[in-house]
Each structure stands twice: as structure tokens, then as C-alpha cells.
Design a protein around this nucleic acid. Structure first.
Lengths: 220, 220
DNA sequence: ACCTGAACACCGTTCAAGT
DNA sequence: ACCTGAACACCGTTCAAGT
């Protein structure tokens, strides 16, 4: 039987010309649908109704596509700025906004957190907001990069564990014979653990900031 | 020119017979050397001086090899148990022991943290020790899984950021014009950030435990 | 300038056949 | 029971050729 396929490229004009941004956008759609590992230069070309080799005129190779998609998403992140709210609340909002983005593109974000060390750039809204909040919280300038790195690593780390399912597996382990009517409500575990991690790191920072004025600070 | 290669399989007897454990061990060596993405069933067979297809008699497919290697390393982890030290010190020791393991097999661990949600199993020494310590610290039984998940996610998350270089990039950003003689000693950044994250999460847990006796605890 | 077909050097895995 | 060669259906990418 004849396969029903679109006419070979060239007989039908492509709606949009091939561009770098268009390639990234199409790649993101494929990644959202099927995961990073399923992305193929050939499938990507098909999705764009192009010849696989045409992509190489706009993009050097597959790795550049993945980095480009990650950069695109990392740059697009936006968060509202509550200039005069307490820093605890501002950092909570930043983290949940970032988590919302992660839930919108879970496959890409899980990949980026572990494979793209430069996924979050210093000029990105996320990083700018994070350092501004910690600065306003009273973190000494000399420790700002260190503390920002710490908070950033915790947020992306917990998100990674949530996105790949480890957080759910761990938090639902061994519901250890509670009281008498062992009724452990499922609750929305992931939400709880994320909030819990956030609250705990915030409390830790509060303790650290309360013990201020000592010479070396975070040093040891 | 003739390529100098070993005689074709069969003319020379293989030193060790092919076994599942042997396959995992060889795969780990290749991963340590060249990374997970460079591991190939064909290269693995060559390293074992076997025909590529022979592997499939001991292992169902490549994914099973990766899971097997991860399980092997996860199970082999050992830590000393300081039964009567304060929980803060015990958790610090556990984390640094785990970090040592991560440094021994960085490529595999970075991969496992993000791709193998079941890398750390409930029976694994790491998880057993972690829950035991938090239990001894006074975490209520009802919250033990949640808190353990949180601490586990933070530790693996910060390690991931360290292994892929994000931690280093972030913590060495914008050394913000300190004092007058802007002498920011390089220090060993990674060590500092890891210790800092650990200390901060510990302080957060201390705060949480100090505010005990309230009805719902972490849930709020 | 942009596109393309053919080709190269790889993959993981199936399968029928060997011992 | 264990191994193997040939083959299949893919990959990413190069390159010479087309418009």
C-alpha cells in the first residue's frame, strides 16, 4: 500500500522560513512531548517540514540545539518582584515561580539541571532576583555568591528529585505505623516536601543571619 | 598498513567467563574513564574481549546495564556509625562519606542522581543511616519519611550541582568589590559550599525540632 | 545564501545458526 | 547453555553538488 505522506519538500512552500529561534521552539515542543532522549535531528527536521541537513545551516550541531533550547527557557523566566515584602516571602515566591516553570517543561528542566552547568546565567532573571533578595536579607556582600550558590543548588536539587520521581518515592516510604488508626492521608506529597525544604533552608538562613557580627561568618 | 589488533575472539580463551557482575564492573570502569554517554554495548564487549551479542545472554539491554552499575555502587556504599555522637555530627559524617563516593565515580553518580529515581533504595546503607539519624534526632515518626526525603534531596541536589560544575560557577560569580584590598582567596570553593549547605539545612532542622510539641508539625 | 542527496561511521537489538 | 555473524532500523554529521 502507498504510504500517505506529505509531498516531498520543495513542491510545497514551507510556511515559515527556517530560523534558529524556530528550530529551538520546535525542539522544545518535541522535548515536552517525548523527552530529551527522543529528540533527533531527523525528527526535528520532519517537524519543521525540512530536510535534516538544512538544520545545519542555522545550528552547528545537536548539542547546540539542546543548549539553545535551555537558554531560551532560562531567559524567558519571569517572576514578580515584591520589593518591600520580607525576604522569606520573596524567596518563597521566587522558588515557586521557578517551580511552575519546571512543571511546564519538566523533561527539559530535568535535563538542564544535570547537564547544563550554565543553564542559569548570572544575568538571568532568576539569578538576579535571588541575589537581590539575599542581599536585601542582610547577607554580607562577601558571602553573597556562596549563599546564592547554596540556595540555587538546593532549589534546583529538590526540583530535580521531584521531576525524576525520587522525591515521591522517598517521602512515601515506610509510613511507620502511626498512632492507632494508621490513616496516612496521601496529601500532595510533592508540594509538602518542596515547601518543607524551602522552609527549612529559610530557617537555616535565619539562624545564620541572626548570628551576625562574628568575624568570619560562613567560613566554618 | 595493518592494524595491530588482538586475535579474533575464540582463538584466545577469555581469562574470566562472562558474568552479570563482571559486565557491570567493566561498564563502571568505562564510565569512570569516559562518561556514561560514551558507554556502548559494543565498546563494553570489546573491553571484556567478547562479542557484542554475547552480552545479551547475561543482561537484557543497555538500560539494565546502567541500572545494574548504579545499584552495584549504591549498595556498596558504607559509612561508619557513631551511635552516641550528636545527630548533627552524624549527619555531617554521613553526607561527607557519601560525597567521597560521589567523587570516586562522578560521572556515574551525576547520571544516577538525575536518571535513576531508584538509585537510593530504602534498604541501602545510606537511607538506613539517614533515617536512623533523623529518628534519633527526635524527628516525629509521622514526619520521618518527609524529612528524610528532604535531606536526601538536598544532599544529592547539592552534589549534582557540584559534580556538573554549576556550584563552582555560581559561587565564583561577581566577587563584589570586597573592602579595599579586593583579595578574595580562591579557597576551596566546592568544599565550602557543600559544608555551608549542610550546616544551613542542619540549622533549619534544629529550628524545626526546637519548635516541637505543636499539633501538626511540618505540615502547617 | 540556502538547501539537498548520498554516504560514512557509528548505534542498540533481533534472529537464525552454530558449538 | 552459551556464543556468534549477518542484518535491520536507526543515529549525527560530512561533503560535494545543486539552485
Amino acid at each position: 500500500m502507498e504510504k500517505a505522506k506529505r509531498p516531498p519538500r520543495g513542491t510545497r512552500k514551507r510556511e515559515v522560513p527556517l530560523t534558529e529561534a524556530g528550530i529551538y521552539a520546535a525542539a522544545l515542543r518535541l522535548i515536552d512531548a517525548d523527552g530529551v532522549e527522543a529528540l533527533t535531528m531527523r525528527k526535528l527536521a520532519t517537524a519543521l517540514d525540512a530536510n535534516p541537513m538544512s538544520l545545519y545551516h542555522h545550528v552547528p550541531n545537536k548539542d547546540a540545539v539542546l543548549r539553545g533550547v535551555a537558554r531560551m527557557v532560562g531567559t524567558q523566566f519571569r517572576t514578580v518582584t515584591l520589593k518591600d515584602a520580607p525576604w522569606q516571602e520573596r524567596i518563597r515566591l521566587l522558588a515557586t515561580d521557578f517551580r511552575t516553570l519546571a512543571h511546564r517543561h519538566p523533561k527539559l528542566m530535568a535535563y538542564s539541571f544535570s547537564h547544563q552547568a550554565d543553564f542559569i546565567q548570572p544575568e538571568d532573571p532568576f539569578w538576579v532576583a535571588l541575589t537581590a533578595i539575599l542581599d536585601a536579607a542582610g547577607v554580607p556582600h562577601s558571602e553573597l555568591p556562596l549563599i546564592s550558590a547554596l540556595v540555587g543548588a538546593v532549589i534546583t536539587g529538590v526540583l530535580t528529585a521531584e521531576l525524576n520521581g525520587a522525591l515521591h518515592r522517598w517521602s512515601s516510604l515506610k509510613p511507620p505505623t502511626v498512632g492507632e488508626d494508621g490513616f496516612t492521608p496521601p496529601d500532595h506529597d510533592e508540594n509538602r516536601v518542596f515547601r518543607l525544604a524551602l522552609d527549612t533552608i529559610i530557617m537555616g538562613l535565619e539562624s545564620r543571619l541572626a548570628a551576625d557580627g562574628d568575624g568570619q561568618g560562613a567560613g566554618h
